[in-house]
């Protein structure tokens, strides 16, 4: 009998504890949702529209789509940042640094931006990851002032630039004739995945690690210079210009 009484008490206590926990989780969830703010806006655009974004902290994802509009969605974490995109004669400009000048604390802003495939993309952030995919406009520029990964996937632009201090850089795309491609990092891994029929002049420098792996592209007329710290030369006709610098990391070429 005492056994059943003890068991009943335990069940009651467990039920109370579960109720309290549920209430706590519910409160935290609601508070979290209330702390965030969502921004969403569409802009009409042409094929050669340009998006220019300067973020403070947070992730930025840009995707190309088969529509002429630009869709901007942002999740703003507390303390919520001021966000005032501007349409400056065909260029959508978002400058969170300028819009929040003088504010001591600003929460992360995580963007998801969809642009026409032929759009030009120029994105920059102080801290956070940048990702661009399915874009073939005249320009793709991704720059992180400090740390964060840069991922450029299915890119067909003729001018591509990616730069960070700490973090990986991944480029997967087609190199255009007479295009200009520049990748630079202080510490991280730079991986370039390009078609075997690419044609480029290369200067790849990895001074600390001397870790430059040309993979299948090692068959080009390439020279190792400075005790293997730099690879210089041509692959194919050498029409595009490719410059890769990784101060304390590796450089790897992959076949697409």
């Amino acid at each position: 009998m005492s056994y059943w009484r003890w068991s009943l008490t335990a069940v009651r206590q467990a039920t109370k504890a579960a109720a309290v926990l549920a209430a706590v989780f519910l409160f935290i969830g609601v508070a979290s949702v209330e702390a965030q703010k969502k921004f969403s806006r569409m802009y009409p655009g042409s094929n050669n529209v340009r998006i220019q974004l300067i973020n403070r902290t947070g992730t930025v994802t840009v995707e190309g789509w088969n529509r002429s509009e630009i869709s901007i969605t942002a999740i703003l974490e507390a303390p919520v940042a001021n966000l005032e995109p501007q349409n400056q004669s065909g260029t959508i400009v978002i400058n969170l640094v300028r819009d929040n000048q003088g504010r001591a604390e600003v929460g992360n802003v995580n963007f998801l931006i969809r642009v026409p495939v032929s759009a030009m993309v120029d994105i920059e952030t102080k801290i956070g990851n940048l990702s661009v995919s399915n874009v073939s406009g005249g320009l793709v520029r991704a720059r992180i002032s400090s740390e964060g990964d840069i991922t450029l996937t299915n890119i067909g632009s003729s001018a591509v630039s990616a730069e960070n201090v700490i973090g990986d850089i991944f480029f997967d795309g087609v190199m255009q004739e007479n295009g200009n491609y520049r990748f630079s990092s202080m510490r991280g891994n730079i991986n370039l995945r390009i078609p075997f029929n690419s044609s480029f002049r290369l200067v790849a420098t990895a001074p600390s690690t001397r870790n430059i792996s040309m993979g299948p592209f090692g068959t080009g007329s390439l020279n190792y210079m400075g005790d293997g710290r730099r690879v210089v030369g041509k692959f194919g006709e050498g029409s595009a210009t490719l410059s890769v610098t990784n101060q304390q990391g590796s450089i790897t070429f992959l076949r697409r």
Binding site: T57, A104, E105, K126, I127, S146, E147, V165, I166, M186, R187, S208, Q247, Q248
Partner: peptide
């Protein structure tokens, strides 16, 4: 005026640069 995360990120990156 920076928050802790910004300060730490800045210092980390500056350290890497100084090493080079």
């Amino acid at each position: 005026q920076w928050d802790k995360r910004t300060r730490e990120a800045f210092d980390r990156n500056m350290q890497v640069i100084e090493q080079s």
